[in-house]
Each structure stands twice: as structure tokens, then as C-alpha cells.
Nucleic acid binder design. Structure first.
Lengths: 176, 176
DNA sequence: CGGAAGTTTCAGTAAAAAATGAAATTTCCG
DNA sequence: CGGAAATTTCATTTTTTACTGAAACTTCCG
């Protein structure tokens, strides 16, 4: 399958972005391709379109599947697995954030907790102790908040975001 | 300077986290070291403490300086530059988010805009067009919101976060 | 001005990450 | 069951990224 110039640009940029945020470039590109294709593709097609080894596609899809960003589908009369991604940008974002929270933020919180509870914590300077403590509190607040936000319906969330500045006034006790 | 076990653990984890989010490991480690040290350190001291080449420290500090995460200080009677980082976790977070928005989100928005305005956009499938469009809208809403949030005082922001679920009710028009 | 202390640059090297492709494995159908 | 199609695994290679250390540069002081 040949890519149009815009699709190509989008995919390349997406790959680049992925790389900057710690996602393998090919994985991000495959995701972008599925996103724009808007229809299930077979691994072969993906490999051909992106000029990437079939095995690389296999591994990348495995990763995307494990993150739930991609699902397997079957097409009538085709024995091969086909893959498609969530089309709703909001849902996608949610999945990505949830995944990273679980895989990265949770272990960090665990580490901070262990540090703070460790007996050798007493050896640390007051500054270090306070900063570790504050870091944990900060991350805790942020994750609690994020969890709550992610539990909302996209619609509600949308409203919240669009409010933005107004919330500021609300909090300060001013009139809207 | 010898690291205590906890400081070491924190620094190693921070470096690891950085790596997962697209930040050079050494850069992240230096930042963590300055964060816990809570006092200005000379580049030499950093290099020695982290067992890293002096030149590496120089380049990494340059990067941290360019991101405004680190500042240069001078100590009485010492000709060497000393470096320290923002101690306030909130301020730190703000700096990091602002930086990434500018450096990464802005170019993405630009790319999406160019795609959507390109004449060759007409060649694209309806699905692709719609998804590119929606992606842009999503990122726009999110950045606008983030900009507003980051403009708030830490205190206000803190309240907002702590509200969390209550805001949900507020939006839905229920009683608190 | 001379030179010591401090810093940065950058070419070369080392380490890490990603991609390939051949071989092994699984799946499915007659 | 036999074997073709599809898929996955993994040792090897390629590519990318990070790090080092020698050399160049800058700053500051006597």
C-alpha cells in the first residue's frame, strides 16, 4: 500500500514524537498508520507499507496489544490476523496515560515510599528528606487527580477542560 | 562526595525514569543529585559523585540550563561555577511541562495545521481527514487548558487538584 | 603579559537500542 | 495426520545514542 504525502508526514512525525517520549519509533509509526487507515490491516500490509521487517511488525504489534492500543480482528475469508486501533482520540489518550501511570508512576511511588520508610532514612540530610517527602506527596496528588479525571466520561472531561480559567475563579470564590 | 544508599537509589531511579521519558540518563541523574543536595555543587563534584566524565557533566548541565531546570551560582572564595536546581516540586513540574510543550507539542500542532491546510488534503480518505482534524482539536484543547493551569499559583492549582471528584459533580450540576 | 584554573568542544569509542532474517513454532485445513 | 500458511522467536547486524578524553578555548589574577 502506497502512502499519500500527508499520511506519510503524519506517520513520520508520530514516530519521531514517540521516540522523544520513550516509545520505539516503529511502534509509534505502526500505531499512526492504523490510526489513519481507520480499518484493520494485516501485519504483512503494515510491514510493506512502512518498509519494515515483518518480524519487527510482529514484535511492535505485540507491544501495542499489551498496551491495549491495538486490537486483533478477523476478516471474512482471510486467515490472517488484522489489527486496528482505537479511533477515538480521547479514548486513546486515556489508554496511553493509564498505561504509563501503571508502568512508570506506580513503581516510582513505590520507590519513594520505600525510601521514606527505610531505617537508613535518618542518615539523610533534612533537605533530602523533605524533598523526597514532597516529591511523593506531589506525585500522589497528581495520580489521584488523574485517576479521577480518567474515570469521567469524555463529555464531562471535555467540559472540565473547556472551563479552564473559569475554574480558577470558582476556586478563588469569585463570581464567574 | 559519597552518596548514601537512599540518595543513590533515588538518583538511579530518577535516571531510569528520565530514560523512559526521553531524557538522557545522565542529565536526569545530575538533576536528581542537585535536587537532593539542596545546595549548589561544582561540576567537578558532580562528575566525581556520579562517576561520569567531566565533559559529560558539562554538556548535561548545559542542557539542564537551557531547560531552566538548573541555575548557575557563585560561592564566595570559589572561582568555579556552581549549579543548583529549583527545590519546589511544583515549580519544577511546571518548568518541565512548559518546556516539553514548547519543544514538542507546538511543532506537532504546527504539523497538524499544515496537513489540514495542505491542498493535497483532499486526496486523503474521509477517515484520515477526520482523525487528523480531531487530533488537532484534542491537542489544542489540552494545551490551552494546560497553559491556563500553569499560569495559576501553586496554591490555587493545589486546590484544583484536591477538588478532583467534586468538580465532577459541579460540572454535572449536582450538589457538592 | 603569562600562565594557572576552569570550562567547553568535538572526534573517536563504547554502549544501548532497534531491526533484520533465518529458523522454529503454531495454526488451520483437507 | 501432513503440510502449507501464518506467525513468532532470537542470534546477529545495524543504527543510534551516549560517553570519554585530549585539545582548544576562556577567564581571571599576579
Amino acid at each position: 500500500m502506497k502512502l499519500t504525502p500527508i499520511t506519510e508526514r503524519f506517520i513520520l512525525h508520530w514516530g519521531e514524537m514517540g521516540a522523544r517520549w520513550g516509545v520505539n519509533r516503529t511502534v509509534a509509526q505502526i500505531h499512526a498508520l492504523l490510526f489513519l487507515a481507520g480499518a484493520p490491516l494485516a501485519a504483512d500490509e503494515i510491514a510493506e507499507t512502512l518498509s519494515v521487517a515483518r518480524s519487527n511488525v510482529s514484535m511492535s504489534l505485540k507491544e501495542l496489544l499489551s498496551w491495549r492500543l491495538v486490537k486483533v480482528t478477523h476478516l471474512m475469508g482471510d486467515r490472517r490476523d488484522h489489527f486496528e486501533t482505537v479511533g477515538d482520540v480521547w479514548a486513546l489518550f486515556k489508554l496511553i496515560v493509564e498505561g504509563r501511570m501503571q508502568r512508570e508512576i506506580a513503581p516510582t511511588l513505590a520507590m519513594l515510599g520505600e525510601c521514606l520508610e527505610s531505617p537508613s532514612m535518618t542518615q539523610e540530610s533534612p533537605v533530602a528528606r523533605q524533598r523526597i517527602q514532597e516529591t511523593r506527596e506531589f506525585i500522589q496528588i497528581l495520580t489521584t487527580w488523574a485517576d479521577e479525571m480518567l474515570r469521567q466520561e469524555p463529555e464531562t472531561l471535555m467540559k472540565l477542560l473547556k472551563m479552564g480559567a473559569k475554574i480558577h475563579n470558582f476556586v478563588r470564590g469569585n463570581k464567574p
